[in-house]
């Protein structure tokens, strides 16, 4: 009888521990977890880097403050993902029409060795005229990627060249520089354009 009571308490104890573990999991890793803040870009106002745009102008995070921003990483020797993203963005900008006029759109290279200012100028010229191409010294590119919590890596190819693995998401920031959301690669246009409108709307709220 006594022994059974102890067993009973033991079972209740195990149950309580299990519940605590479950609640802990729910809050930390489970559906109740907050967005992984460490993996999201910091605000543009907290970034510090110096690059050059495709027209030779010195640019930095402050260049983007005051207008909503759409930014993404890539490289001009990229045969598949980058031209696809650039043409997707061109399509979204066409859909937005006049709304897109007050927006910064920036393509930042992760391959500054091959992507000089002139190379970027030629490349972006094939896409929507709002798209700016930014390049700069490797250590500055590293700082941009760090602020965006983006990654890139140089990988040799069988042809003796190299390619770049890189974050392919499109990042959206409000005019204040606050990070709003990102558009994942492969995300359908019916989701992408409303997300851009959300970043544009934040500007309106800030302005009024």
């Amino acid at each position: 009888m006594r022994r059974r009571a102890i067993l009973g308490y033991g079972a209740a104890g195990v149950g309580a521990v299990a519940l605590m573990l479950f609640v802990g999991w729910w809050r930390v890793d489970g559906p109740g977890a907050p967005a992984p803040v460490g993996q999201l870009p910091v605000a543009l106002t907290e970034m510090d880097f110096r690059l050059t745009d495709h027209e030779g102008n010195a640019v930095g995070p402050e260049t983007l403050i005051g207008r909503p921003t759409m930014a993404f990483f890539g490289f001009t020797y990229c045969p598949d993902v980058c031209p696809t993203t650039l043409s997707d963005i061109s399509g979204w900008l066409d859909d937005l029409g006049d709304e897109a006029d007050e927006m910064n759109v920036v393509f930042i290279t992760v391959d500054p060795e091959r992507d000089t200012v002139e190379t970027m100028a030629e490349y972006v010229g094939y896409f929507h005229p709002a798209i700016r191409g930014w390049t700069g010294p490797e250590e500055q590119i590293a700082r941009v990627a760090d602020g965006f919590r983006a990654t890139y890596e140089r990988v040799p190819t069988e042809s003796g060249d190299y390619t770049m693995n890189h974050t392919a998401s499109v990042f959206l920031f409000a005019a204040s520089g606050r990070f709003v959301t990102m558009i994942d690669y492969h995300e359908a246009r019916e989701f992408a354009v409303p997300k851009i409108r959300r970043a544009l709307a934040e500007e309106m709220e800030g302005a009024t």
Binding site: Q39, D80, V155, S159, T163, N165, T167, S169
Partner: peptide
């Protein structure tokens, strides 16, 4: 092209794209 090859682009959970044969 001297080296044509079927490649596959993959994008992982962190949003990083890579390409391989």
């Amino acid at each position: 092209a001297m080296m044509p090859e079927i490649h596959e682009t993959k994008t992982n959970a962190e949003g990083v794209s890579s390409m391989s044969p």
